[in-house]
Design a binder for these strands. Structure first.
Lengths: 128, 128
DNA sequence: CGGTATCCGCCATGATACTG
DNA sequence: CAGTATCATGGCGGATACCG
């Protein structure tokens, strides 16, 4: 087997996309402290649609990172919890979230500088 | 400022999307060992289109993670290199790539099991 | 409560052609 | 070599309605 994200055929590239994808990193992060109900997750992940939350959770369940447990009470109650495999990816993801939170102001400044220097049509014939 | 990826308005969420996005993780990873030319990157990141490579590099440059240096030789030569900010994110990204490479077979098995258990219309009236 | 089903717009991405 | 420009498209993701 290939086991190399730089190889075109290696399926692990798809896996990298998956765990790094927008909502996955947030869902997993929110499950770090323990099981959560569907509605709890929806409330805490501001801006996620019901559809995307369902879809994200299904993918995570299918991939073995999360378990889904139904308690047939009335009203229905469903809890999601990280598996051991799921817990094994929390650290790298937490590091990434933390990096984003620590550095977004620096990045915002870099953007300003960059955009000021290149107002699209300025400096005629600047090679690019 | 908010500094919380779980908040809808916090711009750091967009930054998380950026560094976690498909090609970004691979480009940054390949720049870990030192500067690279455009064509080198293109060769090493199997399957990336010229357009996506350019776009990814532009974004990284604009966000201050990468520098772009033009050597006006003939033929033209352009080198990309990580900035200090860029280097600060290599570790979490490497951890994520490594996780994907270590675990994709486990995940593949989990998928098989899951798909076998739920052939869409089986087990009539299984609550879901 | 915790979903599924359907419709649909829009943008990310790829393919192709051309340029300095 | 290292791009830019343009066009085509597929699927991501939101909105809405309905179900057990």
């Amino acid at each position: 087997m290939i086991r190399n994200v730089y190889s075109k055929e290696c399926p692990c590239r798809g896996l990298l996309d998956m765990v790094a994808s927008r909502w996955t990193a947030l869902v997993i992060g929110d499950l770090e402290d323990g099981p959560r109900r569907f509605s709890e997750l929806k409330k805490r992940l501001e801006g996620i649609s019901q559809k995307m939350l369902t879809q994200t959770l299904r993918t995570l369940e299918r991939d073995g990172l999360v378990t889904r447990t139904v308690y047939p009470s009335v009203p229905l109650r469903v809890e999601y919890e990280l598996t051991e495999l799921g817990r094994s990816v929390t650290e790298p993801l937490a590091a990434l979230r933390s990096w984003a939170q620590r550095n977004y102001e620096t990045v915002a400044e870099a953007r300003e500088t960059f955009d000021k220097a290149e107002p699209v049509g300025a400096e005629p014939a600047t090679a690019r």
